[in-house]
Amino acid sequence: MVNRSLEVLVGFFICLGIAAIFVLTFRVASLDTVGSGTDTYRITGQFQNIGGLKQGSAVTLAGVRIGRVTQISIDPHTFQATVHMTIDRQYDNLPEDSSASILTAGLLGEQYIGLTPGGMPEPLTDGSELMLTQSALVLENLIGQFLSNMATQQE
């Protein structure tokens, strides 16, 4: 015979465990569904250097997350990185000539894609390719550039 207090304890334990899983999923990981739902459209962009961008990185517009990076591959002809993104369907009026740049959150933080809207009347649609892209800022290149500028100035 299982007595009543034992049943209560076991039920309490199971609920506590499940609650903990929920806390982990929603409070700690923040189940962010932007750009991962079904109601999205896909666009691509080619970058010379993506830096530390990875699958799942955010795609933002004016700092607001509107989508995510789904896939990164190499274009066999141009040898550039092709970044596939999904954008939430509610932002389906972005101008076709919008530009994308890879930005860094803070000095050493995560990298993400920031979109800057252009001025064309036609919007981006499923399968569109972003024409204007700006690569990630690579610190080593930046320092190298800075040093060579210093050298030319001193001459």
């Binding site: 199971i14 506590l16 903990a20 899983i21 806390v23 700690v28």
Partner: peptide, 17 residues
């Protein structure tokens, strides 16, 4: 098998929280 993941989740919440 049932208890282990539940206990682990509780442990994690306690440790982070």
């Amino acid at each position: 098998l049932i208890s282990m993941p539940l206990l682990s989740a509780i442990f994690s919440v306690m440790a982070i929280g």
